[in-house]
Design a binder for these strands. Structure first.
Lengths: 136, 136
DNA sequence: TGTTTATATGCCTGAACAGGTATATAGATC
DNA sequence: GATCTATATACCTGTTCAGGCATATAAACA
């Protein structure tokens, strides 16, 4: 809840990209892997860092762990993430993250594996309970 | 100029207080000592940290080194310092910093030593060129 | 039961860094 | 020239942490 801790969470590029994405939509670890293109360990550790500081919360759904911004954080983060949004308009990596996120949202509402295995070709096979809905 | 570097500068309490104060007025090291109540080394090191990242700039005036926010930084910092302002409304230390700054501005426009030595009792002795003007 | 998938964690190494003590520098003053 | 003032810096110690590798766990599945 410390102001400093918020900035500590912000002062790593990967974490910043993660929070940036979470500002738009809850996501599971494999989404971050796809979008950020970073190894699983790295992402998992940064998520653990963020979670240990109450910056993100988790919800288990089927196989997947869905990360999101907690309500309590939402308000205080909102302002800062908004700043981030502005700062980030000119930054290639962040823009690319968002593009990838949009594509994920369009092509498939489920974790990577389902999509990758090509089960049913793509957007069908809606085990609606298990799917992770992106806010488009 | 990296976004991350800005947050790195923000993620130490002393630095945050320094920037908070500089958002209001250029100050010299001894002002920070008075206001923050931290040892000179500590402050000097954090100022060096900030300067090495282009977050503050310095100007030598007589004996004193005046720190301020550079123009280039002003815009991008403005937004974040504004966030800080909001976050900080509820934080005792930051409020106290501002109160002390106000008092300094009222009682004496010159570095501590002059005031401390009690030369001429206070607000007189205006070697106007050398005095550090606070924006009130 | 053995395997795959999704995710987390332990251990290691190197870098950054906070804070402290002591000291350096440079200008002003005595 | 000695001293004081304002500020900076070198060195030391302990901590945090990023990133990598290997491995653990737990659920689903073959």
């Amino acid at each position: 809840m410390d102001l400093i801790q918020i900035y500590q969470c912000f002062c790593d590029r990967t974490r910043l990209r993660i929070l940036h994405l979470l500002g738009r939509s809850p996501l599971c670890v494999c989404h971050f892997q796809d979008i950020l293109g970073e190894p699983q360990v790295k992402i998992s550790k940064h998520l653990a860092y963020l979670r240990s500081r109450g910056m993100v919360r988790t919800k288990k759904e089927q196989n997947w762990v869905i990360y999101s911004l907690p309500e309590r954080r939402a308000t205080e983060l909102e302002r800062n993430l908004k700043c981030l949004q502005d700062c980030v308009q000119t930054d290639a990596a962040f823009k690319r993250d968002m593009e990838k996120l949009s594509k994920l949202a369009k092509n498939c509402c489920e974790p990577r594996s389902v999509f990758r295995r090509g089960v049913n070709g793509g957007r069908t096979n809606a085990k609606t309970k298990s799917s992770v809905h992106l806010r488009s």
